[in-house]
């Protein structure tokens, strides 16, 4: 399934909960959630480890707005709003970790 995370990993435990739940499928990082996909963030290693079983996407306009598009963690795929819609359509269910 698709997990949508919109909170910064250092502000809320949402992303860690997703990772600990051993989810497979995909994580889409949006809004403040995109900070998880930046190099040097404290969750970088945990996110990389999860990439074995999970695809990780981050929303481009949210990366741009925060000035962090140039420090994207390797292995993360950037999508636009159209890609967001495609992902929601692709997975049977999705969970927004609001």
């Amino acid at each position: 399934m698709l997990h949508i995370v919109n909170k910064s990993p250092l502000e809320r435990p949402s992303l860690d909960t997703v990772l600990q739940a051993g989810a497979d499928g995909a994580i889409l990082l949006i809004e403040d959630g995109v900070y998880a996909a930046t190099r040097g963030n404290a969750v970088e290693d945990r996110l990389k480890k999860a990439m074995g079983t999970l695809k990780v996407y981050a929303l481009g306009p949210d990366l741009d707005a925060r000035g962090v598009a140039d420090r994207l963690t390797e292995g993360v795929t950037v999508v636009g709003y159209d890609g967001f819609v495609d992902l929601v359509a692709e997975y049977k269910t999705n969970q927004s970790w609001l």
Binding site: Y35, D62, G67
Partner: peptide, 22 residues
């Protein structure tokens, strides 16, 4: 905490339709 992100260089907010206050 996440407040340090307010000062991160290079905010490009056109895509989210908000004013860039950087």
């Amino acid at each position: 905490d996440d407040g340090v992100y307010q000062l991160k260089k290079g905010h490009q907010t056109k895509g989210i339709g908000m004013k860039a206050f950087e």
